[in-house]
Simulated scan of single mutants.
Amino acid sequence: MASVAEWVEGARVRTLPNSVAPVVVGAGAALAGGGFSPGRTVLALVVALALQVGVNYANDYSDGVRGTDADRVGPLRLVGAGVATPRAVKTAAFACFGVGTAAGLALVAVSGFWWLLLVGAACVAGAWYYTGGDRPYGYSGWGEVAVFLFFGLVAVLGTEYVQVGAVSWVGLGGAVAMGAFSAAVLVANNLRDVPTDRVAGKKTLAVRLGEERTRVLYAALVGVPFVVSVILVSASPVAVVAFVAAVLVVPALRLVLGQETGMRLVPVLKLTGLAMLLWATVTAGALAL
């Protein structure tokens, strides 16, 4: 039986900025649109966090039962390390999906946008079939596209929409930035795992591109939010302050472009996630002003 500390580590807390940051940006866009609602923002945050932890447990389960986590570097894998049964981890994943679904239903009820139930169902399906099912799309190189879609466009624009009843170009810019940051986190993760994924037959985008082109892709993705910052200056001159996130991106870039491999790439995930959260917080504040 896994300990509480092991369950927490298995939840991969360091990935949570990927959930918090898009909601923060969406709330900032709602503030700029004059329709901010604290209650709806909190519900959106619960949905995002629950689905994030759920997908982390789901990945742990699916990769574990397939044996692709047997020699994986990085954070503890509950199933792969044998500290929790596959059934227990799968149950934890669906419990998180249940919490996210409940919060999503509440959000839809208070907003009145019932068609968003379809979006919610797509999010849960996307979370499970990333590594679950007979043909997981994460094993075919589509993970980054899904992350860009769900943690970028859906999370940011969904948060803005349930509060304002519309999406703005400001929100779209923030959504693109969040999607790029989230995809960059996954690219760094998959770059780290290229040797073991290749052996396990997991054809992630990093495996398909090769390490050198994957490093270039990471650099391009983390550059996108700063381009968005320049564009957002027309909406709020203070948005330029988001360039402070470069203090976290630059060290990550040095590791990626410096040909680091394996465990030496683990700090890149943390730095990129924190840069995403910092960029989101500063940008949301700028939009609120």
Score class of each variant (00 low, 15 high):
Val65Phe: 09
Ala32Lys: 13
Leu16Arg: 10
Gly80Glu: 01
Ala44Ile: 15
Pro86Cys: 00
Tyr61Ser: 13
Thr85Val: 02
Val53His: 01
Gly64Ser: 10
Leu16Met: 15
Ala32Ile: 07
Asp71Met: 15
Lys90Ala: 13
Ala58Pro: 01
Ala88His: 04
Gln52Lys: 07
Pro75Asp: 02
Ser37Ile: 03
Asp63Thr: 11
Leu49Tyr: 04
Asn56Glu: 08
Val83Phe: 11
Val83Cys: 12
Ala27Trp: 14
Gly80Cys: 00
Lys90Met: 07
Gly33Tyr: 06
Val42Arg: 08
Ala32Gln: 13
Arg77Thr: 10
Asn56Lys: 06
Gly34Ile: 06
Arg14Ser: 14
Gly74Gln: 00
Val47Trp: 10
Tyr57Gln: 09
Ala88Asp: 14
Leu16Tyr: 12
Arg72Asn: 02
Val89Lys: 00
Leu43His: 06
Gly26Ala: 08
Ala81Gly: 04
Val79Tyr: 01
Ala50Tyr: 02
Ala44Pro: 15
Ala50Asp: 03
Asp69Trp: 01
Gly67Asn: 07
Ala44Ser: 15
Val53Tyr: 03
Gly64Leu: 05
Ala21Ser: 15
Val65Asp: 08
Thr85Cys: 02
Val47Asn: 09
Ala84His: 05
Ala88Met: 07
Gly34Trp: 02
Ala44Gln: 14
Ala58His: 03
Val73Gly: 13
Gly54Gln: 02
Gly80Tyr: 00
Gly39Ala: 11
Gly54Cys: 05
Tyr61Lys: 11
Asp63Asn: 12
Arg77Asn: 09
Ala50Gln: 05
Pro86Val: 01
Pro17Gln: 14
Asp60Pro: 02
Pro22Val: 08
Ser62Met: 04
Ala44Lys: 14
Leu76Thr: 06
Gly82Leu: 00
Gly35Glu: 04
Ala21Val: 14
Val73Arg: 08
Pro75Tyr: 00
Val79Glu: 03
Gly35Pro: 08
Arg72Ala: 12
Pro22Arg: 08
Val13Trp: 14
Arg72His: 01
Leu51Glu: 05
Val25Thr: 07
Arg77Ser: 10
Val55Ser: 11
Ala88Gly: 07
Asn18Arg: 12
Tyr57His: 08
Leu45Glu: 05
Arg12Met: 06
Pro86Thr: 01
Gly80Pro: 00
Arg40Thr: 12
